[in-house]
Protein backbone atom coordinates (compact mmCIF):
# COMPACT_ATOMS: atom_id res chain seq x y z
CA UNK A 1 0.00 0.00 0.00
CA UNK A 2 1.35 3.37 -0.96
CA UNK A 3 0.69 6.43 1.22
CA UNK A 4 -2.83 7.77 0.78
CA UNK A 5 -2.89 10.66 -1.67
CA UNK A 6 -6.44 11.38 -2.72
CA UNK A 7 -8.25 13.86 -0.43
CA UNK A 8 -10.78 11.18 0.46
CA UNK A 9 -8.09 8.68 1.49
CA UNK A 10 -6.34 11.31 3.60
CA UNK A 11 -9.64 12.20 5.21
CA UNK A 12 -10.40 8.60 6.09
CA UNK A 13 -6.91 8.08 7.52
CA UNK A 14 -7.51 10.98 9.91
CA UNK A 15 -11.04 9.92 10.74
CA UNK A 16 -9.96 6.42 11.73
CA UNK A 17 -7.75 7.78 14.48
CA UNK A 18 -10.69 9.00 16.56
CA UNK A 19 -12.07 5.86 18.22
CA UNK A 20 -15.23 7.56 19.51
CA UNK A 21 -16.13 8.92 16.10
CA UNK A 22 -15.37 5.57 14.53
CA UNK A 23 -17.67 3.82 17.03
CA UNK A 24 -20.37 6.45 16.38
CA UNK A 25 -20.04 5.91 12.64
CA UNK A 26 -20.38 2.17 13.17
CA UNK A 27 -23.49 2.79 15.29
CA UNK A 28 -25.03 5.02 12.61
CA UNK A 29 -24.26 2.38 9.99
CA UNK A 30 -25.73 -0.37 12.21
CA UNK A 31 -28.94 1.59 12.86
CA UNK A 32 -29.22 2.49 9.18
CA UNK A 33 -28.80 -1.15 8.14
CA UNK A 34 -31.31 -2.33 10.75
CA UNK A 35 -33.78 0.29 9.50
CA UNK A 36 -33.26 -0.62 5.85
CA UNK A 37 -33.68 -4.33 6.51
CA UNK A 38 -36.43 -3.88 9.12
CA UNK A 39 -38.99 -5.97 7.13
CA UNK A 40 -36.54 -8.90 7.22
CA UNK A 41 -35.47 -8.57 10.87
CA UNK A 42 -38.60 -7.42 12.65
CA UNK A 43 -40.73 -10.25 14.11
CA UNK A 44 -43.91 -8.37 13.21
CA UNK A 45 -45.13 -5.89 10.63
CA UNK A 46 -46.55 -3.14 12.85
CA UNK A 47 -48.44 -1.61 9.87
CA UNK A 48 -50.39 -4.79 9.27
CA UNK A 49 -53.41 -4.42 11.53
CA UNK A 50 -54.28 -8.10 11.04
CA UNK A 51 -51.19 -9.15 13.01
CA UNK A 52 -52.01 -6.88 15.94
CA UNK A 53 -54.05 -8.07 18.86
CA UNK A 54 -55.32 -5.80 21.59
CA UNK A 55 -54.90 -8.76 23.92
CA UNK A 56 -51.15 -8.18 23.62
CA UNK A 57 -51.34 -4.44 24.38
CA UNK A 58 -49.05 -2.83 26.99
CA UNK A 59 -47.26 -6.04 27.83
CA UNK A 60 -43.85 -5.81 29.54
CA UNK A 61 -40.53 -6.85 27.92
CA UNK A 62 -40.12 -10.60 27.69
CA UNK A 63 -43.84 -11.34 27.27
CA UNK A 64 -44.75 -14.13 24.88
CA UNK A 65 -47.74 -12.90 22.89
CA UNK A 66 -50.43 -14.50 20.80
CA UNK A 67 -47.99 -14.60 17.87
CA UNK A 68 -45.97 -17.16 19.77
CA UNK A 69 -42.73 -15.13 19.94
CA UNK A 70 -41.04 -13.14 22.69
CA UNK A 71 -41.69 -9.36 22.74
CA UNK A 72 -38.14 -8.41 23.75
CA UNK A 73 -39.02 -4.80 24.57
CA UNK A 74 -42.69 -5.35 25.33
CA UNK A 75 -45.67 -4.01 23.40
CA UNK A 76 -47.40 -0.66 22.97
CA UNK A 77 -51.06 0.33 23.65
CA UNK A 78 -52.13 -1.04 20.23
CA UNK A 79 -50.44 -4.37 20.86
CA UNK A 80 -47.53 -3.67 18.52
CA UNK A 81 -44.25 -5.41 19.24
CA UNK A 82 -41.93 -2.56 20.31
CA UNK A 83 -38.80 -4.00 18.65
CA UNK A 84 -40.65 -4.09 15.35
CA UNK A 85 -42.23 -0.68 15.90
CA UNK A 86 -38.85 0.88 16.75
CA UNK A 87 -37.20 -0.67 13.67
CA UNK A 88 -39.98 0.59 11.41
CA UNK A 89 -40.00 3.92 13.26
CA UNK A 90 -36.26 4.34 12.69
CA UNK A 91 -36.87 3.53 9.04
CA UNK A 92 -39.35 6.39 8.74
CA UNK A 93 -37.28 8.79 10.84
CA UNK A 94 -34.12 8.16 8.82
CA UNK A 95 -35.96 8.32 5.50
CA UNK A 96 -37.55 11.63 6.38
CA UNK A 97 -34.42 13.07 7.98
CA UNK A 98 -32.19 12.17 5.04
CA UNK A 99 -34.75 13.23 2.42
CA UNK A 100 -35.40 16.56 4.15
CA UNK A 101 -31.65 17.09 4.66
CA UNK A 102 -30.85 16.32 1.02
CA UNK A 103 -33.56 18.59 -0.37
CA UNK A 104 -32.70 21.39 2.07
CA UNK A 105 -29.00 20.99 1.18
CA UNK A 106 -29.68 21.19 -2.55
CA UNK A 107 -32.04 24.13 -2.24
CA UNK A 108 -29.96 26.01 0.33
CA UNK A 109 -26.63 25.43 -1.42
CA UNK A 110 -28.07 26.55 -4.75
CA UNK A 111 -29.46 29.75 -3.25
CA UNK A 112 -26.35 30.50 -1.20
CA UNK A 113 -23.85 29.87 -4.00
CA UNK A 114 -26.02 31.77 -6.50
CA UNK A 115 -26.18 34.74 -4.13
CA UNK A 116 -22.40 34.72 -3.61
CA UNK A 117 -21.52 34.18 -7.27
CA UNK A 118 -24.01 36.53 -8.91
CA UNK A 119 -24.04 39.26 -6.26
CA UNK A 120 -26.01 42.47 -6.63
CA UNK A 121 -29.75 42.63 -6.02
CA UNK A 122 -30.24 38.87 -6.13
CA UNK A 123 -27.66 38.47 -3.36
CA UNK A 124 -29.39 41.09 -1.21
CA UNK A 125 -32.83 39.58 -1.85
CA UNK A 126 -31.84 35.96 -1.09
CA UNK A 127 -29.71 36.68 1.92
CA UNK A 128 -32.17 39.09 3.56
CA UNK A 129 -34.92 36.48 3.16
CA UNK A 130 -32.62 33.88 4.72
CA UNK A 131 -31.70 36.22 7.60
CA UNK A 132 -35.35 36.94 8.21
CA UNK A 133 -36.14 33.26 8.36
CA UNK A 134 -33.19 32.48 10.65
CA UNK A 135 -34.65 34.89 13.18
CA UNK A 136 -37.56 32.46 13.73
CA UNK A 137 -37.03 29.21 15.63
CA UNK A 138 -37.19 26.33 13.11
CA UNK A 139 -39.65 24.35 15.29
CA UNK A 140 -42.16 27.20 15.06
CA UNK A 141 -41.95 27.30 11.27
CA UNK A 142 -42.19 23.52 11.01
CA UNK A 143 -45.17 23.45 13.38
CA UNK A 144 -47.11 26.10 11.48
CA UNK A 145 -46.30 24.55 8.11
CA UNK A 146 -47.19 20.98 9.05
CA UNK A 147 -50.42 22.24 10.61
CA UNK A 148 -51.21 24.03 7.33
CA UNK A 149 -50.10 21.24 4.99
CA UNK A 150 -51.64 18.39 6.89
CA UNK A 151 -50.31 14.89 7.59
CA UNK A 152 -48.20 12.76 5.26
CA UNK A 153 -44.56 12.11 4.42
CA UNK A 154 -44.22 14.65 1.62
CA UNK A 155 -45.93 17.36 3.67
CA UNK A 156 -43.64 16.60 6.60
CA UNK A 157 -40.53 16.71 4.39
CA UNK A 158 -41.70 20.02 2.89
CA UNK A 159 -42.17 21.50 6.36
CA UNK A 160 -38.71 20.32 7.48
CA UNK A 161 -37.05 21.63 4.31
CA UNK A 162 -38.70 25.02 4.77
CA UNK A 163 -37.46 25.11 8.36
CA UNK A 164 -33.90 24.08 7.52
CA UNK A 165 -32.82 25.28 4.07
CA UNK A 166 -31.82 28.67 5.50
CA UNK A 167 -28.96 27.10 7.49
CA UNK A 168 -27.56 25.55 4.33
CA UNK A 169 -28.02 28.78 2.39
CA UNK A 170 -26.18 30.78 5.04
CA UNK A 171 -23.31 28.28 5.18
CA UNK A 172 -23.03 27.95 1.40
CA UNK A 173 -23.11 31.72 1.00
CA UNK A 174 -20.35 32.23 3.55
CA UNK A 175 -18.12 29.56 2.01
CA UNK A 176 -18.79 30.58 -1.58
CA UNK A 177 -18.19 34.28 -1.04
CA UNK A 178 -14.83 33.46 0.57
CA UNK A 179 -13.87 31.05 -2.25
CA UNK A 180 -15.18 33.44 -4.93
CA UNK A 181 -12.37 35.89 -4.17
CA UNK A 182 -9.60 33.33 -4.44
CA UNK A 183 -7.22 33.33 -7.38
CA UNK A 184 -8.22 29.91 -8.69
CA UNK A 185 -11.75 31.14 -9.39
CA UNK A 186 -10.30 34.21 -11.06
CA UNK A 187 -7.95 31.98 -13.05
CA UNK A 188 -10.90 29.85 -14.20
CA UNK A 189 -12.89 32.92 -15.21
CA UNK A 190 -9.83 34.35 -16.99
CA UNK A 191 -9.33 31.22 -19.11
CA UNK A 192 -12.27 31.87 -19.84
CA UNK A 193 -14.49 29.01 -18.63
CA UNK A 194 -18.27 29.24 -18.57
CA UNK A 195 -19.94 30.45 -15.39
CA UNK A 196 -21.67 27.10 -15.00
CA UNK A 197 -18.37 25.26 -15.15
CA UNK A 198 -16.72 27.61 -12.66
CA UNK A 199 -19.59 27.15 -10.22
CA UNK A 200 -19.95 23.37 -10.51
CA UNK A 201 -16.34 22.29 -11.04
CA UNK A 202 -14.51 24.83 -8.89
CA UNK A 203 -16.73 26.77 -6.51
CA UNK A 204 -19.07 24.02 -5.26
CA UNK A 205 -16.43 21.32 -4.56
CA UNK A 206 -14.52 23.85 -2.47
CA UNK A 207 -17.65 24.82 -0.53
CA UNK A 208 -18.39 21.14 0.19
CA UNK A 209 -16.57 20.73 3.55
CA UNK A 210 -18.67 23.17 5.60
CA UNK A 211 -21.82 21.98 3.82
CA UNK A 212 -21.07 18.35 4.73
CA UNK A 213 -20.63 19.35 8.36
CA UNK A 214 -23.92 21.27 8.40
CA UNK A 215 -25.64 18.42 6.58
CA UNK A 216 -24.72 15.83 9.23
CA UNK A 217 -25.93 18.08 12.03
CA UNK A 218 -29.07 19.06 10.15
CA UNK A 219 -30.03 15.46 9.39
CA UNK A 220 -29.91 14.80 13.13
CA UNK A 221 -31.94 17.97 13.66
CA UNK A 222 -34.48 16.93 11.03
CA UNK A 223 -34.90 13.57 12.77
CA UNK A 224 -35.50 15.21 16.14
CA UNK A 225 -37.80 17.85 14.59
CA UNK A 226 -39.80 15.08 12.96
CA UNK A 227 -39.99 13.25 16.28
CA UNK A 228 -41.18 16.43 17.97
CA UNK A 229 -43.87 17.04 15.36
CA UNK A 230 -45.03 13.43 15.53
CA UNK A 231 -45.02 13.57 19.34
CA UNK A 232 -47.34 16.55 19.06
CA UNK A 233 -49.51 14.61 16.61
CA UNK A 234 -48.67 16.79 13.59
CA UNK A 235 -46.30 14.56 11.66
CA UNK A 236 -47.37 11.24 10.21
CA UNK A 237 -50.72 9.43 10.28
CA UNK A 238 -51.33 7.16 13.30
CA UNK A 239 -51.00 3.96 11.27
CA UNK A 240 -47.38 4.81 10.37
CA UNK A 241 -45.81 5.13 13.81
CA UNK A 242 -42.54 7.03 13.81
CA UNK A 243 -40.34 7.22 16.91
CA UNK A 244 -41.96 10.45 18.08
CA UNK A 245 -45.41 8.95 17.88
CA UNK A 246 -44.34 5.80 19.77
CA UNK A 247 -43.02 8.02 22.56
CA UNK A 248 -46.30 9.96 22.54
CA UNK A 249 -48.31 6.72 22.61
CA UNK A 250 -46.51 5.55 25.72
CA UNK A 251 -46.56 8.91 27.44
CA UNK A 252 -49.86 8.42 29.34
CA UNK A 253 -48.49 5.19 30.83
CA UNK A 254 -45.13 6.62 31.99
CA UNK A 255 -46.29 7.04 35.57
CA UNK A 256 -48.27 3.82 35.74
CA UNK A 257 -45.34 1.42 35.73
CA UNK A 258 -45.37 0.86 31.93
CA UNK A 259 -42.46 3.16 31.11
CA UNK A 260 -40.96 0.85 28.44
CA UNK A 261 -43.44 2.04 25.82
CA UNK A 262 -41.91 5.54 25.81
CA UNK A 263 -38.41 4.76 27.07
CA UNK A 264 -37.16 2.32 24.43
CA UNK A 265 -38.18 4.38 21.38
CA UNK A 266 -36.67 7.39 23.19
CA UNK A 267 -33.38 5.53 23.73
CA UNK A 268 -33.30 4.55 20.04
CA UNK A 269 -33.87 8.17 19.04
CA UNK A 270 -31.18 9.50 21.40
CA UNK A 271 -28.59 6.92 20.33
CA UNK A 272 -29.19 7.74 16.67
CA UNK A 273 -28.99 11.52 17.15
CA UNK A 274 -25.96 11.40 19.45
CA UNK A 275 -24.13 9.07 17.05
CA UNK A 276 -24.82 11.34 14.04
CA UNK A 277 -23.67 14.36 16.04
CA UNK A 278 -20.44 12.64 17.11
CA UNK A 279 -19.66 11.82 13.49
CA UNK A 280 -20.52 15.42 12.56
CA UNK A 281 -18.19 16.80 15.26
CA UNK A 282 -15.28 14.74 14.01
CA UNK A 283 -15.94 15.77 10.41
CA UNK A 284 -16.09 19.42 11.48
CA UNK A 285 -12.82 19.13 13.42
CA UNK A 286 -11.12 17.58 10.43
CA UNK A 287 -12.25 20.34 8.10
CA UNK A 288 -11.17 23.05 10.52
CA UNK A 289 -7.72 24.16 9.35
CA UNK A 290 -6.83 25.48 12.79
CA UNK A 291 -7.22 22.05 14.38
CA UNK A 292 -5.24 20.31 11.64
CA UNK A 293 -1.89 18.89 12.50
Amino acid sequence: MSAPSTPLALFWADFRENRVALAALAMVALIALAAIFAPLIAPQNPYDLATLSLMDARRPPGFVGSGGYVHLLGTDPQGRDLVSAILYGLRISIQIGVAAGAVALTLGATLGVAAAYLGGRLEALIMRAVDLQLSFPPILLALVLSALLGQGRLQLIAALVAAQYAYFARTAYGAASAERRKDYVEAALATPLSGRRVVFRHLLPNCAPPLIVVATVQIANAISLEATLSFLGLGLPVNEPSLGMLIANGFPYMMSGRSWISVYPGVALIVLIVAINLVGDQVRDQFNPRLRR
Partner: peptide, 12 residues
Amino acid sequence: FQDPFASLDPRM
Protein backbone atom coordinates in the same frame (compact mmCIF):
# COMPACT_ATOMS: atom_id res chain seq x y z
CA PHE B 1 -0.80 34.69 -11.10
CA GLN B 2 1.39 35.75 -8.22
CA ASP B 3 0.57 33.12 -5.65
CA PRO B 4 0.68 29.55 -6.98
CA PHE B 5 -0.79 28.33 -3.68
CA ALA B 6 -3.99 30.28 -4.39
CA SER B 7 -4.22 30.09 -8.16
CA LEU B 8 -4.62 26.31 -8.41
CA ASP B 9 -7.91 24.71 -7.38
CA PRO B 10 -6.99 22.55 -4.35
CA ARG B 11 -9.66 19.99 -5.30
CA MET B 12 -8.59 19.34 -8.87
